[in-house]
Design a protein around this nucleic acid. Structure first.
Lengths: 231, 231
DNA sequence: AATTGTGAATTCCTTCACAGCC
DNA sequence: GGCTGTGAAGGAATTCACAATT
């Protein structure tokens, strides 16, 4: 276990590896080599070994990794053995979709509450029975319900003030869907999901005269790409 | 204008710069320096100048950049002066949300159609009147409606086959929300949006004993982070 | 024989620093 | 004086290549 700072590229890849291991486990596979895993992701086996080596020596030379052991280690490293309470702010299309979207209610993430400031939305219920609460109750709720992560599904103009509010309430982790860069706050991790940038990136690709050559930089840049997010 | 290969980090930042310029334009600002823009994004002014320099000399030494000129240049570079037809596959919560989400119907992106294979969903309408079509008609529709970009809002298990189908129909750009890495196809650009990885990345941060030190690597890695996506 | 863990080499990206221009 | 554009330096991330281990 090293003490170096670990890059977010590495930790994001750990999520991928874990997903792969989950699948292998469900197929009953017991051992896996870095090479075999690397093939699934079109990345290099040394990359996987290096990523894992930051956290310990989980493999056996000449043999590979135990699927169940490594899986447990990664869950530990990623903090997935602890439940995390998640709240969404913004009950527009996106907020409701995220609330209802199953993907957030798994792996220890619990969608606990959704907020909006629009009186017409307050009191309505999502299909799975989550009631839209008044945004003015957000700070209280964060403390009462022990919210760990707040998801911003609000307009760009509202995001910065909202960030002040939730950090004041003690929130350390934010997933931001608003198309705006938020100013860094000490001790607060913000991940950005920016659909517009993704679409425009595709648009750029389509606008290239040689939109026929794959982004095949060996495989690195191509893949590295997956993982950056933000600020 | 260089002929070097341009990194996706660069093009993604162009999207950010454009967004910034849009705002400046709407405020009536006419000129901007790389330094002033850099401050908005907590990144380095040389970075902005380098990014732009790949495509031309848009600035004036001693003066800065003309907001409206640079804006037009970036729209050109990103291919945003051409309309792009977008289709969604998967009319579950996420697909419907994406269809209704305003963000996709702007900047020249037009949400044209949504598909599903579930007979109970086919024929239903989204709130803005888009009718869910039978997924079997997807290939036809891609050609008839000149779809440029297909958004995957399907389960992981369905994504790979779907990719084969849309690439066979001539699609060159895919925005994938399914939590699975897709195998590279020559000449096809795939961007991944992976909520699970984002959440787990926040979980990792929360699990760190020293979850108090900001990710402040100067500002580089911190920000660079924003932009990678995928494969 | 196979596969890990890792220093060294490489490639890629960012920042510095300054010449050149308004 | 101020700001761009860019070569050179510096830093990060990836890949190579091999010793160590079973």
């Amino acid at each position: 276990m090293k003490t170096e700072k670990i890059s977010e590229l590495t930790t994001s890849r750990l999520s991928l590896y874990l997903r792969c291991l989950d699948e292998l486990a469900s197929e009953g596979v017991e051992r896996i080599s870095s090479k075999a895993m690397a093939e699934q992701f079109a990345l290099h086996s040394a990359q996987i070994r290096k990523d894992l080596a930051y956290f310990g020596e989980f493999g056996v030379r000449g043999v590979g990794y135990s699927v169940s052991d490594l899986r447990e280690q990664l869950r530990q490293i990623l903090g997935l053995n602890t439940d995390r309470n998640v709240a969404i702010v913004g009950a527009g299309n996106l907020g409701i979709a995220l609330a209802t979207y199953g993907g957030f209610n798994s792996n220890g993430f619990r969608m606990v509450a959704i907020f909006d400031s629009d009186p017409n939305k307050i009191g309505t219920k999502t299909r799975d029975g989550l009631c839209v609460q008044d945004a003015r109750e957000l700070s209280d709720c964060i403390q009462r319900e022990k919210i760990d992560i707040v998801v911003f599904a609000v307009p760009a103009a509202a995001a910065e003030k909202l960030l002040d509010q939730v950090t004041a309430a003690g929130i350390k982790a934010v997933l931001n869907f608003a198309p705006v860069r938020l100013p860094p706050k000490p001790g607060v991790k913000i991940k950005h999901v920016d659909f517009a940038i993704s679409l425009e990136s595709l648009s750029y690709f389509l606008a290239q005269p040689n939109s026929s050559g794959q982004t095949t930089t060996g495989m690195g840049a191509d893949f590295r790409d997956l993982l950056r997010n933000g600020k």
